[in-house]
């Protein structure tokens, strides 16, 4: 029934080196990153994208064009191998896909006549600028935009952990807005605990409960903020996980399914907060069109 979902397989270094062709060729920084993805050490759309761009910066820095090859072609090929390897570790997030598209475009635009050092420096600068503009600045803008929606006396509900949401709550708290938070959490990752810890650490009052208690807490909630992995994606990547309960595998009829993402219908969303402003979900195509027309950096 769930054959269409990519099955989960545990990823270890040994296994990768044995099975994956790409693994032996990639830069150590990429290898390290891939294992972190697979092990769940780096999670969240922004964090994953950021980590990937940093790793690629290292790749570019250490890159030396082989004799008789052109930088734009050969580097692109190297990056492709690295990306393929990362996909093997964990399917790409939408944010990573967008960043990769950008990077490839930049690499392909490098003039073959440019000296290697100069070309590398240009690329590194561009990656830095992408990070600055599209991730760091964008996050800050999102937080600033969303913070206008947090008012005194609000009870804000959020699910699991999202870096942007935490920044938002902290921002509002520091601005002196008095509000309460409810952190709703779900198994298996229980990422909400991370958010709860951070909130408590900064002295923000919080209520913690599991997803199942939602009907109980929802009546006092005034606003719900959720971090999204991707907007407009119809059903994100999913994975089938193995269970820590090993005895379960003895039962031939029993399967375990552990999907990673929900596709949330747009009619349940009131507003989407982006770095370009706060928009209703129906206006997402508008933003996408604007993006496409945007001249690349």
């Amino acid at each position: 029934m769930f054959a269409h979902l990519p099955p989960y397989k545990s990823v270890t270094l040994d296994k990768l080196l044995l099975e994956s062709e790409a693994a032996s060729k990639v830069h150590p920084a990429v290898l390290r990153l891939g294992l972190k993805y697979a092990g769940g050490a780096v999670v969240g759309a922004n964090a994953r994208c950021l980590a990937m761009l940093r790793a690629f910066s290292e790749v570019i820095e250490d890159y030396a064009t082989p004799e008789g090859k052109v930088l734009s072609r050969d580097l692109a090929a190297q990056l492709n191998t690295a990306i393929q390897f990362l996909v093997e570790c964990r399917p790409l997030s939408v944010s990573m896909g967008n960043a990769i598209k950008f990077l490839k475009l930049q690499v392909s635009k490098v003039d073959p006549s440019t000296p290697e050092a100069e070309a590398k420096q240009t690329l590194l600068d561009k990656v830095e600028r992408f990070i600055e503009e599209k991730i760091v600045f964008a996050s800050r803008e999102v937080v600033a935009n969303a913070a206008t929606k947090v008012e005194n006396g609000d009870v804000i509900l959020t699910y699991a952990h999202s870096a942007v949401i935490f920044d938002l709550l902290l921002h509002a708290h520091k601005a002196g807005v008095r509000f309460k938070t409810i952190v709703v959490d779900g198994r298996p990752h229980c990422e909400g605990r991370k958010l709860l810890r951070k909130l408590l650490h900064h002295g923000i009052p919080a209520t913690y409960c599991l997803l199942n208690s939602l009907s109980y807490v929802i009546q006092e909630v005034t606003k719900t903020f959720l971090g999204a992995s991707a907007v407009m994606s119809n059903g994100g990547p999913s994975r089938i996980a193995s269970s820590p309960l090993s005895a379960w595998s003895d039962l031939p009829y029993l399967g375990l399914l552990n999907v990673m993402y929900d596709a949330m219908p747009s009619d349940l969303v009131t507003l989407i907060v982006t770095e370009l402003g706060i928009i209703p979900p129906t206006s997402v195509p508008v933003i996408l069109r604007e993006y496409r027309q945007d001249p690349p950096l």
Binding site: N212, L254, L257
Partner: peptide, 13 residues
């Protein structure tokens, strides 16, 4: 034929 899921996956399935 049984499949066990986490509560958070109910909506998705």
């Amino acid at each position: 034929h049984t499949t066990a899921i986490a509560d958070s996956a109910i909506f998705a399935l």
